[in-house]
Every structure is written in structure tokens, then in C-alpha cells.
């Protein structure tokens, strides 16, 4: 009896120690990666990074054109993806809450949410780059918009579903049409949550590399022409990190740090906005 008891006790202690160690190793490992990133990234960080163009190998320079390019592509992607995502999410949470279409869209949306982003790049290459005959910043933005849509659809639907039905019923009892109930009451009540979804989407796409590789491609020079290849931070990091030049590798680390700080800041703001609500 007492040996059985001791064995059970011992197994418990072993497994709990293991789970404690797993936490230390898991979290520590990730912190280690961030530490290296900050260490290597800070070494190359200076004002020049934000004011100068990408250099040829062996020269000094910064990351101005990829940063601007990333901002343009991201802004455009959000401008394209957000309205579509919010409208589709509205249908699923309001008009067609129990319709079969919503069930199917919900499933498809979840698939798109986790689909490999490189496949999205191939898709946009097929439908935009190949017919147009050249790579373009616009194609990059559309590719990222395809990634934005499922994120926004998901959060919009979840947040609208948290709006109590009594509010809709009260508004409907006043004779307000459905469309106005949705726009003036539901959107207002779920606003912060929906904004969170958009911020999360921005955080998600600002580090995406794979879909940009063969849509926006890259550009050595400063360009705001949406119809031409456009530099972006992730694509430049990819190119510079794999190059044999030390200066370029250093800039890649700095770029990686810039992206990570931006992504973490966006996620934290999104989290703070959604704090009173339950996150999806």
C-alpha cells in the first residue's frame, strides 16, 4: 500500500517537474531568440536606417525604401481587405446567422485563415502577375489583402455575436430597419473588438514574406509606383540575410528587429483594446 502510494507520489513529482522544465525551456528558448534579435538588431540600428536607401554591397545605407514600400503595401492591403472582411462577417453574424451559407463560409474562412501563405502568393501570381506581364506593388497588396480578409471576417463575426440580442430587439421595436440597427448599434457596440481584428490582421501581414516574393518582388530603388516592383521589408531581409555580404546581413538583422517591434506593438495595442471583451 505504501509503496503504491510512494510510486504514485513519485510519478506525480516527476511529471510536474517535467512540465515546469518544459515551461522554462519553451519560454526561455523563445526569449533567447528575441534576445539575439535585439542584440544583433540594435548593433546596426541608427537614424540612417530610416533615412537612407538600401545600399549596394560594401556600402553604407539604410532601409528607407523597403520601409516605405512595406507601409504602402500594408495600407493598401488593409484598405482592400477590411471592407470585404467586415461585410462578410456582418452577414454571418447578423443576416445569415443560421443559414447554410454562413456555415460553409465559416468553414472555408477557417481554412483560408491557416492556409499556407506561399500558396496565396502563387494564386495572385496566376491571376495578376502573369496576365499583367510584370511584378507590381499592387499585386503584393492584393496578395496580403487575401490574408487580411479571413482574419477580419473571423473577428467581426465573433465580436458582433457578443452584442446582446436585446439591443437589436430594442432597436427593432422602435421600427429601425435592420441595416440601420447593424450600422448604428451593433457596429458601435462591437467597434473596439472589430478594430482589434484589423490590428491583428496588420500585425499578421507586416511580417509576411512568402506571398510578396513573387508578387511585389523587390526593388533596389525608391519607388512608389504601384504598377512596378516594390521593395518590402520582409523581402529585403530575405535577400540580404542570404547574401554573403556582412553589411547586408547586418541590415537584415536590423530590419528583422524593426518588424518584430512593430508586430509586437500592434499585438499589444490590439490586446489592450480588446481587454474588457473575450478574445477570439
Amino acid at each position: 500500500m505504501s509503496t503504491l502510494y510512494r510510486r504514485r507520489k513519485r510519478r506525480d513529482v516527476i511529471m510536474m517537474t517535467l512540465s515546469f522544465l518544459a515551461t522554462i525551456v519553451g519560454v526561455g528558448w523563445l526569449v533567447l531568440i528575441l534576445g539575439v534579435l535585439v542584440w544583433e538588431g540594435l548593433a546596426g540600428l541608427s537614424l540612417r536606417v530610416f533615412t537612407e536607401m538600401t545600399p549596394p554591397p560594401g556600402a553604407d545605407g539604410g532601409l528607407l525604401n523597403p520601409i516605405i514600400g512595406s507601409l504602402i503595401i500594408t495600407a493598401l492591403a488593409v484598405a482592400i481587405g477590411t471592407p470585404v472582411g467586415i461585410l462578410a462577417g456582418t452577414y454571418m453574424a447578423e443576416y445569415g446567422r443560421h443559414s447554410r451559407l454562413s456555415t460553409v463560409v465559416r468553414f472555408v474562412n477557417d481554412i483560408l485563415l491557416s492556409a499556407p501563405s506561399i500558396v496565396v502568393g502563387l494564386f495572385i501570381y496566376e491571376v495578376m502577375v502573369a496576365p499583367m506581364g510584370h511584378f507590381s506593388g499592387l499585386a503584393g497588396a492584393v496578395a496580403l489583402a487575401v490574408i487580411v480578409i479571413p482574419v477580419v471576417v473571423r473577428t467581426t463575426e465573433d465580436m458582433l455575436r457578443l452584442v446582446p440580442d436585446q439591443m437589436r430587439e430594442a432597436a427593432a421595436a422602435l421600427g429601425i430597419p435592420r441595416a440601420n440597427v447593424i450600422r448604428s448599434i451593433c457596429y458601435r457596440a462591437a467597434g473596439a473588438g472589430m478594430l482589434t481584428g484589423v490590428l491583428l490582421a496588420i500585425a499578421r501581414i507586416s511580417g509576411e514574406t512568402a506571398p510578396l516574393l513573387f508578387t511585389a518582388l523587390n526593388n533596389q530603388f525608391f519607388s512608389t509606383d504601384l504598377n512596378a516592383p516594390m521593395a518590402s521589408l520582409p523581402a529585403v531581409i530575405f535577400q540580404f540575410a542570404l547574401s554573403p555580404y556582412k553589411d547586408w546581413q547586418k541590415l537584415a538583422w536590423t530590419g528583422a528587429l524593426v518588424i518584430t517591434v512593430a508586430v509586437l506593438a500592434l499585438s499589444i495595442v490590439a490586446r489592450a483594446l480588446a481587454a474588457p471583451r473575450k478574445m477570439p
Binding site: L87, A88, V153, R183
Partner: peptide, 22 residues
């Protein structure tokens, strides 16, 4: 209301079309 309903419905169908398009 009918217009808004159909626009949102269209966007939802758009998500399906997206997957089909891929």
C-alpha cells in the same frame, strides 16, 4: 436594407469564391 443585406451576402460569397479561385 435589402441592398445592405445583399452586399454583405455578396462579401460572404466572395470568401467562398476566393477559396474556389485559389
Amino acid at each position: 436594407d435589402a441592398i445592405y443585406r445583399n452586399v454583405t451576402r455578396g462579401a460572404a460569397i466572395g470568401v467562398l469564391v476566393l477559396l474556389g479561385g485559389v
